[in-house]
Design a protein around this nucleic acid. Structure first.
Lengths: 336, 336
DNA sequence: CTGAAAGCGCTTACAG
DNA sequence: CTGAAAGCGCTTACAG
């Protein structure tokens, strides 16, 4: 029996005699033979594997994103190769190169670098979909959360609720998401409260940086009556700082975040935030990627923006329901 | 110039003339050439990639675990290939087989199946480390959290605090972690409160199942004065159910969980729990695996158990500090 | 239905 | 220092 016949038998090719197939199956089970995926994909030019390079693998945001990606990958029988760049250009390049030849397509989220770096580290032949990544729109299919609109909507809500001294906590300076959120917030503030210059404290998306920012704002001469953090983790840290400082949230200061990570509704007080359908972002991105892979010619290059939604919970209003499970999410939600 | 020279130049081989190296580097950059990882590893028998097959990729527990694994992988310049079995035997088998030839070693967590399934789906030649997986200890290096001891310690704490009607919420029946935690709790209860038969409600590790269990326990004739859930997510759901039902935690009923996921200290009230050093579990597992890969001959087959720690927060005592950041973790912690 | 052969894209002794 | 050749483990037309 030749290795060709074995290969055919194992792959369920039709032109194999019943006896040969039986023998192969039996021997393969007995010996514990498992085909070498690397060799197979070298030959077939199919890896049945999708690569995802994310800024990080840790935390609820990425956990949700991975869940969305995994859900689609799984339904198509694909494995996931995950890597993270830790917001470092060199690590990003290394991660992208390490994927080469091991995946059928790439999902890349790199809010911290321009698409240029991607160009030199991803072969032209590798189908790629970008998520929340700054780029010129020429070359890549991309999905982006409506950071700008979401931030605007939250500012509108805060101003509409009577807040006038609204402070902002931003993410890392070079981060695309953070920059867009800041732009949306300052634009809305300029429109709604002309002449007022908001306090802006820089954070880095970690809870710790939110905690520090909260302390700074507490100590400031012109203490704000509302704080809008560029993500939920920082908003959380900020809540801790204020509570520890003896300030009531939302009694004295209202706080809002961005993302609506699962923990947002569980904390005390439940956190007002801009909801991003994180898992859906992952799902849509992979679906587009699969279309690109199968279309051979390539998908029409296109951008897509995902809408957000303002979710009002107790961290933003004094007189609200106290039970965490029954916050008035739907009643008070505002589609941006 | 031959492809051999190109290969040598690109791989930094010493026996290449400066001029050849320069030419290759230049041309490679200009053309955007990136070596094919699959082909390279077929030849070198090194993939520089580690596979991890987990029950799930979602949620804070796995997020932490992945962080630990990633930290070590990164420090060794290795990529991560992640896959999840969704607690399904067939998916587990598929995931393991898909890894074959794509990774240098395997990290497997499969608390829901016996090691037998692993035996037939992992080639003998693939270095493997098991985490929290039931097995006979013959073949695999394994790391396991001290579920039994942790559960015992928490029951000791609850009984020591005066609780007498302690209800348990378990995880999935066939889950190894869950089974061990249940065994530890019931053993400790039998010793400390002989003759008392605890109420046991089955859950499945999800927040939702904890919520349902909480409702059931509220409605029960013999309402407990403490509830010990087999993980934090269920404890969380349970807290929500009680709070919604107008019951005070911990005033009327104390609640404790297991894992100490990051959110545990942020919820209201902060959750008492059994701390598992989740990220460290991932780190240690990968470090052992790397030792196994490099030892060629294979590591000494061995088991290792990770200790746990009882963390007492507000969900377990009426008169405690109210500020989330200053819970008396260290003061009241008990090493199991 | 089966086998021999080519080839996927690399690396690496081996000879020059 | 460089090139020709073998080979990693598979799959797949091709010929029989």
């Amino acid at each position: 029996m030749s290795i060709a016949t074995v290969s055919r038998a194992l792959n369920g090719s039709s032109n194999v005699s019943e006896e040969a197939r039986r023998k192969v199956t039996e021997a393969s089970a007995r010996l514990g033979y498992i085909p070498h995926g690397g060799a197979r994909s070298l030959r077939t030019r199919r890896t049945n594997c999708i690569g995802a390079v994310l800024p990080d693998l840790h935390g609820e945001f990425f956990s949700e994103l991975i869940r969305g990606i995994d859900r689609v990958a799984r339904s198509h029988g694909l494995s996931l190769l995950l890597s993270c760049s830790h917001s470092d250009v060199d690590e990003l390049a290394a991660a992208l190169r390490a994927m080469q030849g091991k995946v059928d397509g790439l999902l890349v989220m790199s809010p911290h670098v321009d698409a240029e770096v991607l160009g030199v580290n991803i072969p032209r032949s590798t189908p790629t979909v970008l998520m929340n990544t700054r780029h010129d729109g020429e070359r890549y299919v991309s999905l982006t959360v409506d950071n700008y609109g979401g931030a605007r909507a939250m500012i509108q809500h805060l101003v509409g609720s009577g807040h006038r001294r609204i402070a902002l906590i931003t993410g890392p300076e070079e981060n695309f998401d953070s920059a867009e959120r800041l732009r949306g917030a300052t634009d809305a503030l300029a429109e709604l409260l002309p002449g007022v210059h908001p306090q802006i404290v820089r954070g880095d998306f970690t809870e710790q940086s939110g905690f520090r920012a909260g302390r700074m704002l507490l100590a400031s001469a012109d203490r704000p009556d509302a704080i809008f953090a560029a993500n939920d983790m920082m908003a959380l840290g900020c809540v801790f700082a204020l509570t520890e400082g003896g300030v009531s949230v939302p009694g004295d200061i209202a706080i809002a975040g961005f993302d609506d990570i699962p923990v947002a509704r569980c904390v005390n007080p439940p956190l007002s935030t801009v909801r991003v359908r994180i898992a859906e972002l992952g799902e849509l991105a992979l679906e587009r990627l699969l279309r690109g892979i199968n279309a051979a010619g390539g998908d029409t290059i296109a951008q897509q923006t995902l809408g957000t939604q303002v979710i009002v919970r107790n961290s933003c209003r004094a007189a609200a329901a106290r039970l965490p499970m029954v916050d008035a999410e739907l009643a008070s939600s505002v589609v941006s």
